[in-house]
Design a binder for these strands. Structure first.
Length: 844
DNA sequence: CTCTCCCT
């Protein structure tokens, strides 16, 4: 085959590349974007090797088709002849096709059907540095094909734009051919001080100020990189307030915009005007924007991260890697010298990651697991990985496949794909959705199932706006309404094609069609997302998922009047906000019972309700955290009620019991006497608060008959309950060794204060003690009482544990003092022989 | 401030 190839930067490397491929089965080509590798390499290899067929992988559909179109142009042929392309819903190849450009997922389907990849002599991975999950799976399977299935050699060429090529070459034991590219120099402006605050609003403010500064400092049009559509809207608002727009056009650019809007952003600025494009990552790889010489980079990017705990993928905003920042910067140097403003400092730059995390490290692994099981290799460690899948999360993914009946254990315990699992893999959609498609087909609802699958696997068919409801039926209706497919938005057009494709695949084995009703969608969605059933909390727009996680519907959404939802599309929760519901379907409780019967647990519960301050006895039907049915139990078991009441007392603390002076003293006496346990044959029960709480079943429960509320406890006799634990001899011992009262020489019965267990104390007037020579001793003659002496007016004047010493050393002084203040009272000189009295003077 | 991009 002879044709002329144009000269591009990569041309110089082509001969080396061809030589390397002669000698080795695996070769790496490192060439920057724009070097011409995507068009020249396949054509050159075809020239050198006119016999074989070349397969080239592209990460995006638009890249695959445009690469094929450009190559066909160089050959002066229509697409589909020597050069063709193939992707999910489009095949433009023929028997003559020698270079076939395919999207990455197509290779996975091809190799699963034919592990030998018959007829292919060279396989090229383009843009491998992007490290998409599909590319990693494709490489793992291809390496096995090379080693185990092929008789003829399969040549593998991996093209990458970054220096990671070196590591790649080592890992694959492959030579690296390097090609220099060409671009104009781009000057970089870093911040002089780091940003303290990278919150949504502050980032938007900083970006806007930088845009205004750059418009003053530099001529030409500008590309601004922001993490998402929210930031784009906000920056646009800020700029519209602050920029004189007489010669500046603001152009938002993100994946959610229509093709026309995207085109407006891509096209060069009109003569005499400047363009400011506010873009997401879409402008980093997928779209090239004309005429840019200034780049402003927020330094943030949004990435999908699978959250195994929630079983869902959410978005995370994070710092950019160095190679992505360089890629963004390069957008300013395509046509002339440019300038790039970075919203971070040069020293922060040194600390950034070198490359973005490979998708396989963070993605939902269920699709990967299904591919590997379908490949016959459920053990991922048997394959080669540049980044091995996390084993815990891979095991979880295998668990999901088993639930979805895609795999089953053989009698020997090993994991094997089922016939259904093979069908699921061939459908080319997420295993959850594939499972729903099979269920729909079995039940006669194939059409509705396919429509739901298309809705869930593509971007939202309804454009954003205030009136957009989460109700999935509004999307389903789109399939009926517009009778003329030409009027469809491109997303709806694609969705219809997917429906057609899945329908034709599944039709043969499907049950006879049944007319769908209002329940159908909900039932089918439960098949895909049984864990996303949610129940409304009170009368709010807040819902509770089965997992216990809270989620929130827009309060204006009419769907918020529904008590039960199944929620297939859900936004991520952040620390200050609940997860938001993007798409949901109302379901009847009866449907939940019908579809999830095996998971619903009947729960008899008698428990303490701390809010109501009472015991509640109820029977519940529960689905995870959801309570579907709740009924009072008419005759709950008395013992269970009492136990629940004890739970309440434990929660409130022992103070909630009706302690009076007597019962409190009894408790304190017991605690006091516990100190002398080593003298007891028959130990007294421990009576400190913790022990009492621990043993309430034994001492308190028998006294709780008929009680259900805290108030009822007032009727309790704690003294009786506490004493019930003591035998008769123990009660006598208690009265003897820790008496309630002590009789003073005056004849008064003084209450002993045991509130400090280390020093039981009596308080009485000094005159009541006359004639008592020694300190009284209790508790097996071990514990002297502390004596607090009071004035005639009951004020403490002295405290002692040694009465003899008091009389001898201190009495005379105290007497003098008291005599001055209470002259009418009896203050004898000799306290030893004086008569104790509780009156002003002793009776004579 | 209702989600980055993309794929079978």
């Amino acid at each position: 085959m002879s044709f002329e190839l144009p000269a591009l930067p990569v041309t110089d490397a082509l001969a080396d590349l061809s030589a390397a491929l002669q000698k080795h089965d695996r070769v790496i080509l490192q060439a920057p974007t724009g070097a011409g590798k995507t068009t020249l390499v396949p054509l050159y290899l075809l020239q050198q090797n006119p016999e074989g067929k070349i397969l080239m992988l592209e990460p995006r559909r638009i890249a695959a088709s445009s690469a094929a179109i450009r190559m066909a142009e160089l050959l002066n042929e229509p697409v589909g002849k020597t050069v063709g392309y193939r992707m999910q819903l489009e095949n433009r190849t023929s028997r003559d096709t020698r270079i076939e450009v395919v999207t990455e997922g197509v290779l996975t389907r091809m190799i699963q059907e034919d592990p030998e990849l018959q007829g292919i002599s060279i396989l090229i991975f383009d843009e491998f540095h992007e490290r998409s999950l599909q590319a990693d799976i494709g490489l793992a399977l291809t390496l096995q094909s090379q080693e185990h299935y092929r008789e003829e050699p399969l040549k593998l060429l991996i093209m990458s734009a970054t220096l990671q090529a070196d590591e790649l070459g080592k890992a694959l034991n492959a030579p690296v051919v390097i090609s220099e590219g060409f671009s104009y120099p781009v000057a970089i402006n870093y911040l002089s001080r780091p940003l303290q605050d990278r919150s949504f609003h502050n980032i938007c403010r900083e970006v806007s100020s930088t845009v205004i500064k750059a418009l003053h400092e530099e001529p030409g049009s500008m590309l601004v990189f922001l993490p998402g559509a929210g930031e784009i809207r906000q920056v646009q608002t800020l700029l519209e307030e602050r920029v004189q727009t007489d010669n500046v056009d603001l152009r938002p650019l993100s994946g959610e915009l229509s093709l026309a809007q995207q085109r407006a952003a891509i096209q060069p600025a009109k003569p005499g005007r400047r363009k400011v494009v506010l873009a997401t990552n879409i402008a980093e790889t997928s779209l090239t924007i004309e005429g840019i010489r200034i780049v402003v980079d927020s330094g943030l990017t949004r990435r999908a991260v699978y959250d195994p705990g929630m079983g869902m993928t959410r978005l995370e905003t994070r710092r950019l890697s160095i190679s992505s920042a360089d890629q963004r910067k390069g957008r300013a140097g395509r046509l002339e010298e440019g300038v790039c403003y970075r919203l971070w400092t040069e020293s922060e730059h040194q600390r950034l990651e070198h490359h973005e995390t490979a998708e396989i490290a963070e993605a939902d692994l269920a699709p990967l697991a299904l591919e590997l099981c379908s490949w016959g290799c459920s053990d991922s460690s048997e394959l080669f990985w540049l980044t091995p899948p996390n084993s815990g999360r891979y095991q979880e993914a295998l668990g999901l496949l088993e639930q979805l009946e895609a795999t089953a254990r053989t009698s020997s315990g090993s994991l094997q794909i089922t016939a259904q699992g093979l069908q699921m893999a061939a459908l080319g959609t997420h295993p959850r959705i594939a499972h729903m498609l099979l269920k729909a087909s079995e039940r006669g609802y194939l059409r509705t199932g396919c429509q739901l699958a298309a809705i869930l696997s593509e971007r939202d068919l309804l454009s954003s706006g205030k009136e957009r409801s989460a109700n999935i039926h509004h999307r389903l209706n789109l399939f009926d309404n517009s009778s003329n497919p030409k009027n469809d938005k491109s997303s709806l057009f694609r969705a219809r094609q997917l429906v057609k494709r899945w329908e034709s695949r599944l039709k043969a084995k499907a049950a006879p069609p049944v007319e769908p009703n209002s329940e159908t969608a909900g039932r089918l969605l439960i098949a895909a997302y049984p864990d996303r059933i949610a129940q409304r909390r009170g009368t709010t727009s807040h819902y509770l998922l089965r997992s216990g996680q809270g989620v929130e519907l827009s309060p204006e959404d009419p769907l918020a009047s529904e008590e039960y939802l199944v929620i297939p599309a859900l936004g991520g929760a952040s620390h200050h906000r609940n997860a938001r519901v993007f798409m949901a379907c109302a379901i009847d409780k009866a449907i939940i019972y019908d579809e999830c019967l095996a998971d619903i647990q009947e729960h008899q519960e008698t428990r303490w309700d701390s809010k109501a301050g009472r015991v509640i006895a109820a029977q519940q039907d529960r689905l995870g955290a959801l309570v579907l049915e709740h009924q009072k139990i008419p005759d709950p078991d008395p013992d269970t009620i009492k136990r629940a009441l004890l739970d309440g007392i434990r929660q409130k603390g022992i103070q909630c019991l009706p302690w009076d002076r007597e019962s409190l003293q009894l408790r304190e006496r017991l605690v006091f006497l516990n100190r002398f346990n080593d003298r007891l044959d028959d130990l007294l029960p421990a009576s400190d608060e913790a022990s009492l709480l621990d043993t309430m079943e034994a001492w308190l429960m028998p006294y709780l008959d008929g009680m259900t509320k805290l108030e009822h406890l007032k009727k309790l006799s704690l003294r009786e309950a506490l004493l019930s634990r003591l035998s008769w001899p123990q009660q006598q011992l208690l009265d003897r060794e820790a008496p309630e009262r002590w009789q003073a020489p005056s004849g008064s019965n003084i209450r002993v204060d045991y509130s400090k267990p280390d020093e039981p104390k009596v308080s009485l007037r000094l005159q009541e003690l006359f004639g008592l020579l020694e300190t009284p001793v209790i508790a097996f003659h071990q514990q002297p009482l502390t004596i607090e002496m009071l004035s005639p007016a009951q004020r403490p004047v002295q405290i002692t544990r040694d009465l003899a010493s008091f009389w001898k050393n201190t009495y005379q002084e105290v007497k003098k003092d008291l005599k001055g203040r209470y002259p009418k009272h009896y203050w004898p000189d000799d306290p030893y022989s004086a008569t104790a009295t509780h009156r002003v003077r002793p009776k004579v």
